[in-house]
Amino acid sequence: MLTSDDPPTSPTLMDTDGGHIYDDSLPDQPSSSSFSFPFDAGDNPGPDGDDDDDNDGYFNDDIKSLTQCWINERCAPELLPYADDLVRGLMEMIEAQAANIEARREGGEGSGGPSPDAAFLAVLLQQEIERIKFLIRSYLRARLSKIQQHTQHILREELYRNRLSPEELAFAERFQELLTKHFKRSYLDDLPAFLQKLDGARMVSSPDLEGAVFCRIKEDIGGFQLESSDEILTMRTNNIYFLRYNAIRRLMEDGKVELI
């Protein structure tokens, strides 16, 4: 899921394979973590000199990856695999970052509270946290919405059932239970037995996989045969198509196409 384009990394924060460096020590001992925060540079009055130590730029692709997961989830008719690693990793990073902001705010470095500059930096860090929180929330909501829409189908099909996180599975089962109970109590129990089924043929709603989606080609694919017609498309990077979801479903799973 993580496309590792090997961004210029410092040995800190980034660790594309093993997840995030945060795992053990955080958020209890923020100061001992290898993740240094901007305030550290301001601790010592030393001007330019020690900035250089912090200069190794790092870049973390997780937000970008989760953003695309969010877009795909919102656009695709079916439920997609859950981006477990990304969500968990980002949540941990948010916690660590928040703990550090808090620690610095309280700490004041013995000089009587943070300077206005440090306070402003904290605002910026906080702003990023809010953005990521929004992203995660909206991603989860998009999934919940699909789960509510096709609960039975998702619970029944192995493929989709496996795509649920444990929490989502618990939600889906509980939701279905409530729904069934409600239907039974309100009218099903009064009907003849042969009309009481809730999962008969054509009674379970499933996503329309032939529904139209917009997508952008991420890498040259070349000739591509559409199932629904004899035409062969030549798909090149950055082409934008409007077509049936089923046609590009595989390409999207392989990361060659993104929904927009």
Binding site: P7, S10, F35, S36, F37, P38, A41, G42, D51, D54, N55, D56, G57, Y58, F59, N60, D62, I63, L90, M93, I94, Q97, D117, L121, L124, L125, E128, I129, I132
Partner: peptide, 11 residues
């Protein structure tokens, strides 16, 4: 002037 900003996304 402002110090390096170490966001989750990058520095």
């Amino acid at each position: 002037r402002m110090e390096t900003l170490q966001l989750i996304n990058g520095s």
